[in-house]
Design a protein around this nucleic acid. Structure first.
Lengths: 170, 170
DNA sequence: TATCATATTAGAATAATTCTTGTCAAGAAA
DNA sequence: TTTCTTGACAAGAATTATTCTAATATGATA
C-alpha cells in the first residue's frame, strides 16, 4: 500500500487493518471499538497491539487523541484543525469544519504562547433528541441563578441555588 | 456555614474542607490534589470520600468535571460559562473569561440541538516557555504538509509526510 | 538469504476510579 | 433535647482502561 509509505513505522497486517478501519472514519472510535471490529478478521490480534499502534500513530501525528470522553480514549484520524459537535447524552462526536476567529486579547493570555485552539459545541444529537421527545423531557431554567435541569416535571426548587418556584421551561 | 445552606447535600466536616479547598481555586485540581491537601488536616479521610463528594457536587452542578487531562479527572469550581488556556507541556489549565460569538451555520449543525460551547486554547504557559528557551528548543514546520515538530535540530525529513528538506523554523 | 531492529502476543501489572458494607453522624422530626 | 432516619465515612476490595513484560515473530534492509 503505497499510501502508507510515509508512515514512519513498520507496516504489519495488523497495522494495515487499523489504518483501513480509521481511514475516513468519523465516529472517533475508542481502542475497544477498533479492537472489536478488527479482531473478527484477526482473531489472534492483541489488545496491546491496538493500543501500541494507536500510540505510535499519535506520536507520528497520523491521528489525534481526543479526551472528550472521560470513560475512554477516543481517536480522530482527521488531523487537520477542526472542531467538534458533542452529544451530551450518547457522547457521539461529529466533526465540524468551520473557521472561527477566536483571538485572545493580549492582556488575557496570561503569558501563554498560543499554538492553536479547539471548540467543542455541546448539544443533543438528532437521535437523542428524538428519544428525548419520545420521553417528553424538557429543560427548565432557574430565573434566579440560571442553572438548568432536565426532567419530566417542573422542579419546585432550583437544584443549584435552592430558591423555590424559580424554574421556568427553557 | 450559611453559604452552603443550599448545597442540597449533607454538610459534613470533610465536605466543608473540600468546599473550602475548591472555593476560589483556579488550578483545576484532580481528586488526588484535593486528597493530598486535605488529608493533612483530616488524616482519616478516605479517597472514596473525596471521589464521592466530587461526584455529588458535580451532580448538583456546584462544580464542573473537566476531561482535558487524559490521565485524571480535573474539577472546576467555576461553573459559569468560560474558556480555558491549556499548556501542552505541564497540562496546567487557566480560566479565560472572554465572550466569543461562535455560531454554526444551520446546514453544519448535523441536526444537533445546541446547548453551549467551550473553547480550548492550546499553547505553552510562561513557566514552560522559560524552560523551553533554556533548553533551546524550536518548532519546525513542514512547508509541504504543515505538520510541526519540536526539537533542538532541524529534522531532515518531515515526520508526517516524509518529504525531505521541507522543515522550516516556525 | 541473512540479519537486525521493531512488532506481536497473551497475559500480568498498573493506577485512576468506583464499589462494598458495617458503622457513624448530620439533620429532621417529635 | 432526644430520637430516628437516611445519607456519609472509612478502609479497603474490586473494576477496568491502559500500559508493561519478555519470549517469539517478522518487516525491512543489506
Amino acid at each position: 500500500m503505497e499510501r502508507y509509505k510515509d508512515l514512519g513505522l513498520k507496516l504489519t497486517p495488523q497495522r494495515l487493518a487499523i489504518l483501513d478501519y480509521l481511514d475516513g472514519n468519523k465516529s472517533h472510535p475508542s481502542a475497544e471499538d477498533i479492537y472489536r471490529s478488527i479482531s473478527r478478521r484477526f482473531p489472534t490480534m492483541s489488545f496491546a497491539t491496538v493500543y501500541n499502534t494507536l500510540e505510535a500513530l499519535k506520536r507520528n501525528r497520523w491521528i489525534l487523541e481526543l479526551t472528550i470522553d472521560p470513560a475512554r480514549k477516543r481517536f480522530d484520524p482527521n488531523t487537520k484543525p477542526h472542531h467538534h459537535l458533542i452529544c451530551v447524552r450518547c457522547k457521539s462526536i461529529v466533526d465540524l469544519h468551520q473557521d472561527y476567529r477566536v483571538d485572545i486579547p493580549k492582556e488575557k493570555r496570561n503569558g501563554f504562547e498560543l499554538i492553536g485552539n479547539h471548540i467543542e459545541f455541546y448539544g443533543v444529537c438528532p437521535k437523542c433528541k428524538t428519544l428525548k421527545e419520545v420521553m417528553k423531557m424538557a429543560v427548565f431554567k432557574c430565573s434566579k441563578c440560571g442553572a438548568t435541569k432536565e426532567g419530566r416535571c417542573k422542579p419546585q426548587k432550583c437544584p443549584k441555588c435552592g430558591e423555590k418556584r424559580t424554574m421556568q421551561k427553557s
